[in-house]
Computed example of a mutant assay.
Amino acid sequence: MIIETLTSPIILFFVLGMLAGFARSDLSIPEAMSKAMAIYLMVAIGLKGGVAISETGITQELLLAGAAGIGLSFLIPYPVFFLLRKIGGLGRVDAAATASHYGSVSLVTYITAAEVFEAAGMPAAGFMVAVLALMEGPAIISGLSLARDKASNEKGDLLREVVLNSSVVLLVGSMVIGAVAGREGFEPIAPTFEVGYRGVLALFLLDMGLIASRRLRETRSITIRLASLGIAIPVVNGVLGVVLGTVLGLDPGTAAILGVLAASASYIAVPAAMRLALPQADPGIYLSMSLGITFPFNVVVNIFFLSWLAEALV
C-alpha cells in the first residue's frame, strides 16, 4: 500500500506541484481550467455515488454511516476549538472559524483516497459520497455557536450560502441524477466520466500542490504550534472515524473513507461561509492550516495510515 500510494501518478503530480511552488516556478494552471476540472470531478463522483445507491438502495449501512458522518461533523469542531485556543493561542473568532473547517470535509481528499483505496483492492461503498455531502454543513453551525456573539446575524444568507454552495449543489444534484438514471442510464455517458477521470484528478492535484505550497510560503500567521496541530488533529480525527466505522460494521474500505472524511478539512465550502458569517476571522490562519498543512499531510501520509488502521481493526 505504501509503494502503491507513493508511486501513484495522482500523488506524484501533487508532490510535483508542491515542489514547483516551493521552488517559485512560474508553473500555473489557468483558473478557468481549474474550475472546470473541479466541476468535472464533483459531477463524476456524484454520478458514481448515485448509481451505486440505485443498485443497493437505502441500506442500514448508508443510514448508519450518514448518522456517524453528521455526528462527527457537528462534534469535531468543539475539541479542535479547545486545542486551538489552549495550544495554538488563537482568539475566540479565529479558533471558531478554523475549528469549523476541521469539522467539515475536503472533496479532493475524499476523491484521492477513494481512488487510492480502489487501486489497492479495498474500494469504499459508493454511498459514501452521500455521507460526504451530509458532512459539509453541520460544522459551520458548530463553528458559529463557538464564536457566540461574534457571529453574524445574517442567518438566512448563511443558510443559503451553505445549502446552495456550488460543491453541495453539484454533488447532491449529480448523485440524484445517478440514482434516477441507474446503471443502464449512466452507460451512455460513462466513458466521459470514467476514462478521463484519473487524468483530470492528476492535473487537479498538480494545481492543488501549487496552491498549497504557495499558501504556506506566503503566510505569516502560522506558528510552529499551529502547524503541529494541523498534523495532529487529522490523525486523531481520522482514527476516530475509522474506529467508529469499524464498530458500525462497515467494511475496511468504507471505514477508512469515513476516517478520511473525519480527518479532512474544508478549504472551499467553509471558507465561503466564514467570509459571510465571521468576516473578522483571519483567512491566513484557517486557509493556511486546512489547505497548506492538513491537505498535503492527508494526501501524502494520512490516507495510507488510515487504510492500514482500517484493515488492522478487522
Rank of each mutant, 00 (worst) to 15 (best):
A68Y: 04
I111Y: 08
M37N: 02
A20I: 11
L63D: 08
V300T: 12
L309K: 13
I285A: 07
I29W: 09
F82C: 03
A96I: 09
E184H: 10
A52V: 12
G143H: 10
L210A: 04
G185N: 11
V51A: 01
S264H: 07
P30H: 01
V172R: 00
I222G: 05
T192S: 06
A44N: 03
A227G: 06
G137H: 01
L170N: 08
T5P: 03
N298T: 10
I53E: 00
G209Q: 05
V247A: 10
L216Q: 07
A179E: 02
G57A: 06
G241I: 00
S142A: 11
G156L: 09
I231Y: 03
A139K: 00
I177R: 05
V301T: 13
S8T: 07
G69I: 11
F297A: 06
S152L: 09
P30R: 00
I10K: 03
L19V: 12
V80F: 11
V300H: 03
A52W: 14
V108Y: 12
G292C: 14
S166Y: 03
L170S: 08
I285W: 14
A151F: 07
P79M: 05
A95K: 07
L16S: 10
G121M: 13
G156M: 06
L240V: 06
I224Q: 09
V15I: 13
L84T: 12
S54P: 04
S266Y: 07
L62F: 01
T112L: 07
N153E: 03
S174A: 11
A272K: 11
F74G: 01
I39K: 02
T246N: 10
G66I: 04
L258A: 03
G185T: 12
I285H: 13
L309F: 15
V131M: 01
A95C: 06
N153A: 05
G137E: 02
S167Q: 04
F81I: 06
T223H: 14
V239Q: 06
L205T: 05
T98N: 10
K35L: 11
V51S: 01
P234G: 11
E154I: 14
S73P: 03
I141F: 13
G69Q: 04
G185F: 10
P30A: 02
Y110H: 15
A52G: 11
L144V: 07
I70P: 00
L90M: 05
Y102R: 15
K48A: 11
V235M: 15
E31W: 13
G126K: 00
A262T: 12
V300L: 10
V314P: 14
L134I: 14
N237L: 15
I189W: 00
R214I: 04
R215G: 05
S104P: 02
S221K: 15
A95R: 07
M274N: 12
G230L: 01
L64Q: 09
G66A: 04
N165P: 13
G245S: 07
S307Q: 12
I76A: 11
M1I: 10
T223S: 15
S152R: 11
R198F: 12
V299F: 14
S290M: 03
A36W: 13
P296G: 05
S54H: 14
L12W: 06
I177T: 08
S167C: 02
G156W: 08
G137D: 03
L216D: 01
K48R: 13
G66D: 01
L64N: 02
E184T: 08
A232C: 06
A97S: 13
L146E: 09
L229T: 08
M274E: 12
S142R: 11
Y110W: 15
S266Q: 05
M128D: 02
G185W: 10
